[in-house]
């Protein structure tokens, strides 16, 4: 019910945008920019580039506002544009691989360094999410971080519903496996143990 109301509100706003109302456009930007940033930043692991992509998404929405089909959900359309742009960016990166001096340490080493500080669990989890394969990561971010319904994730990713469920399940299992040892340490410390479980 809440979803339907939100959907209708988006339609109303977008109709106003189609009629040239920039206030309505600004409202849509305010409503969705943080959500898009959350998804795209996690996808491409760069805040500046994610911001550029989110900007480009809104510009594309404005450019193609006349071609929007009201049969579809506005947020689905928006996420699809953003994800396509992010995928293009990732593809471009693969083609022209840039080396950062910090990358030379290796991602795993960085995770390990951060994992030595169990109090920073969300950051550790974020790093673990970054290491997931792209197809699992996209489904996982949209479902578990953005909390979109499975049906919408399927539409955004243009894959069957069953495939989405399976990918999300697989991503969760992978994350749990990656974090398992550190989680135990974290739990032990949070229960007042002075030393990590592995040293006991």
């Amino acid at each position: 019910m809440k979803g339907e109301t939100e959907k209708q509100a988006d339609y109303n706003l977008f109709e106003r945008v189609q009629n040239g109302d920039m206030v309505a456009f600004n409202e849509l930007v305010e409503k969705y920019k943080q959500r898009l940033m959350n998804v795209i930043t996690r996808m491409i692991q760069s805040n500046e580039e994610a911001e550029d992509i989110v900007q480009e998404t809104f510009v594309r929405v404005y450019q193609h506002r006349a071609s929007f089909d009201f049969k579809h959900c506005f947020s689905t359309w928006l996420y699809t544009i953003a994800l396509n742009l992010a995928r293009n960016e990732l593809r471009k990166r693969k083609r022209f691989k840039f080396f950062d001096i910090f990358d030379l340490k290796g991602n795993e080493a960085e995770i390990a360094v951060e994992m030595d500080m169990p109090s920073n669990l969300p950051q550790i989890l974020q790093k673990a999410v970054d290491t997931l394969p792209e197809k699992y990561k996209t489904a996982f971010i949209l479902r578990d971080i953005e909390e979109l319904p499975y049906e919408e994730v399927a539409k955004v990713m243009n894959i069957p519903l069953g495939t989405v469920k399976s990918r999300v399940n697989r991503a969760r299992a992978l994350l749990r496996e990656k974090l398992k040892p550190r989680m135990e340490e974290y739990n032990a410390l949070s229960k007042g143990t002075l030393l990590p479980v592995s040293l006991l």
Binding site: M22, F25, N26, V29, K33, Q34, M37, N38, I40, T41, R42, N47, A50, E51, V54, Q55, F58, V59, Y62, L121, P122, Q123, I124, L125, Q126, D144, I145, R172, L175, R176, L179, M183, Y186, N187
Partner: peptide, 26 residues
């Protein structure tokens, strides 16, 4: 545990001039 930690992941930062830059492009 993973689910609990997911909720604590901080939101991505958006620069202060995001809106003005977008407005300029629009």
């Amino acid at each position: 545990e993973v689910n609990g930690a997911l909720k604590k992941i901080p939101a991505a930062q958006i620069s202060a001039d995001f809106n003005s830059r977008l407005l300029s492009r629009i």
